[in-house]
Amino acid sequence: MSRQIFSISQCTRIEMRLLKALRALKWKDNWPAQAGFFLEEIGLESSQTFVFSSLIDAVIKADPEFYLLGPVSPFVSRDELNLLAALGNASRKAINSTEGQDITIPPVVGTLVDECGAELRKARVLMKTRSPLMNSRTVPGITSQVVSFQDDRTLRNVKVVSVHRPTPGVRRVILGGHSLKTFQTDLPAQWVKIFLPDGTAHPVGRAFTIQHFDAVKKELTFDITLHERGPMSRWALNAKPGNALQLAGPRGGFKGVSPRSWLLLAADETGLPAIASIVRQLPADLVVHIFAEIADETERPFLEVQPRVHIRWIYRNGSPTQDPETLSEVLRYSPLPATGGDAWIAAEASVIRTIRTHLLRERGFELGRVHAAGYWKRGEQDHCDLAAG
């Protein structure tokens, strides 16, 4: 087993950022949430995080002793250099060329290395070409069986128990069914994926935060923010008790705050159910600042706020006493505690990038204490952000 390490200064800037992303994907606490941002820094999109996550998962399964250091380590291991070598070769490989392909690479690992290389080429990110360090374990030398990475996608059959209208722009759906007898949630802000059965092999599915799960009645509540052309919005407008659905999960969740910290929560309508579930389980003495962007004042009942929480309502469409505002603009110019705290943010993907950069560069937040997830992306259906968990 090799434990030889080298100074990370021998890596290029692109390699350093990619390496941080690969390490973050298998690290603890909030680090997985940062991987997408590290990849974006070298020109990749957050949606491309999944193929890199699958690669790391496959490598670890193939070789559990693969030496992956921490995200902020000033060193790089021999194993990591070999992985960078494989990615560098793949990023420069002609699309239809098999030249230089090592036939000893297990199929799953080889396929994922090539897919990651294709994503790097697509973004015009060329990695350094380097030779694998053959006198130690190498990625091409892995020979153990590899099982491809799969999420838990067990589908539960459920039915609508009731539908409510807490605000004009929201439908609150309560689900029940025998399959929920084994359903469990252990963290606030966990989410499930809801599928509309349509008789096909690939039904329409969208992710929604669990607003509440009644462990006694075995009933799950989630909120749908109505959008003009979304399939779930169209369904919600006509939903009735007895309608059949399927769901998978739960996943993700809010893992708490650091000792002696304070908490910043910021979201648009898509993240408010998560904020509501987080606030319900916070310590009574914790200082909490919420920034909530909604269409107008009619949507305020969507979020029930406790008196001890400081909240700033932001109206996209304005109000009789307030001009139209946006989440990122208000947060940038609002006073916050001087000491760095913890942050949980969920909104449109580009808004999240702006806020995250502001918190890290101008507000003194530490990287591992900012959880920022793009719950949706303008112009894209069923956007998936690995940071959501």
Rank of each mutant, 00 (worst) to 15 (best):
S97G: 09
G100P: 03
A85K: 01
V76Q: 05
D79G: 08
Y67G: 05
L39Y: 08
L112W: 02
L55C: 10
V76W: 00
L81E: 00
F75Y: 15
N89C: 08
L84V: 05
P106W: 06
F66V: 05
D102C: 13
L55M: 13
V109F: 06
G36W: 00
T49Q: 08
F75N: 15
F37M: 06
L87A: 01
I60S: 07
V51P: 05
E65V: 10
F38M: 04
Q34P: 02
A62S: 15
G88T: 04
Q101S: 11
V51H: 02
E65D: 15
I105V: 13
T104Y: 10
K61G: 07
P71R: 00
A58W: 02
W31T: 08
P74A: 08
I42K: 00
L44G: 02
V113E: 02
L84C: 04
A85M: 02
E65M: 13
V51T: 14
L44T: 01
F37S: 00
F66K: 01
Q101M: 12
N89Y: 09
L39G: 05
L81Q: 05
R92I: 08
A94D: 10
S91C: 02
N89W: 13
S54A: 15
Q101D: 13
D102S: 14
G88V: 01
L112Y: 02
G36H: 00
